[in-house]
Design a binder for these strands. Structure first.
Lengths: 239, 239
DNA sequence: GTGTCGTTTTGTCCCCGGGCGCAGCATCCG
DNA sequence: CGGATGCTGCGCCCGGGGACAAAACGACAC
């Protein structure tokens, strides 16, 4: 009876609406304070504190005290992958005929530390079609042309190579097709945000995951990656 | 608030000890009746029936009525993959210093429809090292030599190719290294069981997942795949 | 030092999810 | 056709998990 119980308790950490809301917010990739997470989940700070202690105990999040704040973030990308696949499972169980989460989220969002949604899927497709990536053991590696081109574009390829995985497929929960994960995808996401091509949404909770392309971003993404995105038009998720 | 709730309800299906026990039993890959699952989970048939209805509603399992029995099995390999990764998460949270689930389970077991444990990991390593497989888009493909050799060994390669994925890595929860999943892995598992090289454990629950090599199996696995396994020595998991 | 802010601990209350037994229904057996 | 078997729906009961308020604690600012 040992293992089923452990399986159950691992899932139980995610199974609570308030904890799920916090985890969703953390899926944006940034660290958040206990107070922010409490507000996001719509519960009292004391309640949130107990939940966060449970999540930390289950190795789903890690805490980092700084001054009178405590910053929480997801423990690692494995946790993010599990959350995404569970989202996919939920979607599969009740395929919504109407997408209820706001168009912005579907257009472009972050998945832990990389890009997802239509943008993420298109990005992967663009890189592969242009011969920048080729299949490798358990994922993708850069071709010679791809490596040169990435460096020229300003991607920190060296940092990407230090990651556990350079580039791998990560199933997109809304598009049902893979987008790119791993060190390269992280570097790309960082680049787009640093250059101001994409901007994070100010909202809370799930809406926090959405990113919207700036006018310059629309142009650059088309030029650099051959990705067609619309400028910020969709409404943010109502959370 | 829509999506966090859905994430939570998807996880909640797994979060219950009784349901988790049933899912674990189904991870052996065979279909089981409602009564068997009730006994496995140690609950009354009526309770089990309610749980199974919930699992079916959540698209985690599928039911198939035949006579006065109802056979349940996991809905698909995505579900199996999610369950395995949650097991890994649980293991990560509380790394047991002593493996509490019985040696047999760790030596060789099934993971949905393919082989896992030390045997599964060694099998993958053997095939790769001997040049039978090479990396491909999102997994592995057979080399020319590999194809010929697999057919000669009696593996139903044609059936394996019809699967959604021919061969891909599947993280092994106990070994923390990948074993082989996909159509090829399924065919290999089928072969080993059909030829009597491996025999399923008679137990219930988690123990059901264990497979033990017969004396002939030990020899054949070494000859055919270069895999060293011990004959049935470990005790079955106490469940 | 004193006030404020963010977080956690403690205590208390309340609600609902899950347990079983029983009855009902379908199926197979002789 | 009657009895045994397998599964499910209904009703009732119980226990524990999670909610908040209040208070304690530590850190920062002035």
């Amino acid at each position: 009876m040992a293992t089923p119980t452990r399986l159950a308790s691992a899932a139980a950490l995610i199974a609570h609406p308030a904890r799920a809301a916090m985890l969703q917010a953390l899926m944006a990739g940034e660290a958040l304070t206990a107070g922010e997470l409490a507000r996001t989940a719509g519960i009292a700070p004391s309640t949130a504190s107990a939940h966060l202690a449970a999540l930390a105990g289950g190795a789903l999040v890690v805490a980092h005290a700084q001054g009178r704040h405590r910053w929480f973030r997801l423990a690692n990308d494995d946790v993010a992958a599990i959350l995404e696949s569970l989202m996919g499972l939920a979607e599969l169980a009740r395929p919504a005929r109407r997408w209820p989460h706001g168009e912005a989220l579907r257009t472009a969002r972050t998945c832990w530390d990389h890009l997802a949604g239509r943008l993420g899927v298109a990005l992967r497709q663009g890189l592969v079609e242009r011969g920048m990536l080729r299949p490798a053991l358990g994922g993708w590696e850069a071709t010679a042309a791809g490596h040169a081109w990435l460096e020229r574009t300003g991607v920190d390829v060296a940092a990407a190579r230090r990651a556990r995985r350079f580039a791998c497929d990560c199933m997109d929960w809304s598009e049902r097709r893979p987008h790119l994960g791993g060190g390269l995808a992280r570097a790309l996401c960082t680049l787009c945000l640093a250059r101001g091509w994409l901007r994070r949404q100010p909202g809370e909770g799930l809406a926090r995951r959405a990113v919207v392309p700036t006018p310059e971003g629309v142009r650059r993404l088309r030029e650099a990656f051959g990705v067609r995105v619309e400028a910020a038009a969709g409404q943010a998720a109502s959370d």
